[in-house]
Design a protein around this nucleic acid. Sequence first.
DNA 1: CGCATACTGAACCATGTGGTTCAGTATCTA
DNA 2: TAGATACTGAACCACATGGTTCAGTATGCG
Lengths: 121, 121
Amino acid sequence: MVQYATTRLDAAFAALSDATRRGVLEQLGRADSSITELAGKFHMTLTGMKKHVGVLEQAGLVATEKVGRVRTCKLGPRRLAEEVAWIEEYRQLWASRFDELDKVVEELKQKEKVDGRKRRE
Amino acid sequence: MVQYATTRLDAAFAALSDATRRGVLEQLGRADSSITELAGKFHMTLTGMKKHVGVLEQAGLVATEKVGRVRTCKLGPRRLAEEVAWIEEYRQLWASRFDELDKVVEELKQKEKVDGRKRRE
DNA sequence: CGCATACTGAACCATGTGGTTCAGTATCTA
DNA sequence: TAGATACTGAACCACATGGTTCAGTATGCG
């Protein structure tokens, strides 16, 4: 198995294990936001939200910049590439451990191929 | 955004946020193992390992069966499909948020090219 | 200037986590 | 049947988490 920076994986997965934080990421995907806006949207205190943002920032998933009184949060530099890579390797392992299922998947693929051909005809 | 069962996402991501537990999953991808074997491999007490296995089992990532004295652990029913789906949606959001930035970067590159030419002249 | 706004930090609280030890119980095996 | 093996459960520990309140500081605005 490939060697991963475990601490970064730890931080990213831990950051994603909270519904509020996943919500914040989705929100920031739509628009940059201030701490106040996020706190309002998720019904919690400024201080509470700041902690969540801190966790996300630590994990590299959010970047913030303070201008005047306002700290603006946006999506950060990390794209969860390593995390996806880890999970995909896991899924491969998983699949290889389940032989019968492999056959099922193979059958499905065949079916799909046929369906695709039909559609194109 | 698609609606996810947040509690399951919570449990799965939390389970993955620990290096030992990720290691256990990788191990079980290679071979089913008893608690004792896992505890030995990861240098901790039986009791400690049992807790990790419990977390993984709770998240659906590991299944166990006790036969005689021995509880055998194997990869569980969940394939992390939802988790991958969530992350992929996030990555898409991320990419779309940086389209503008991409343009800016592209412009800067162009500018740099021009500047470089000027400097060389 | 003076007040409202936006954040920050410390302190607190309940609960969860990652580990341990110790004292069992249940199951093999000689 | 005796002893070793494999697990289980309770209790404990230090520390992290997710939240709060309260008391600041810094900034914008009329």
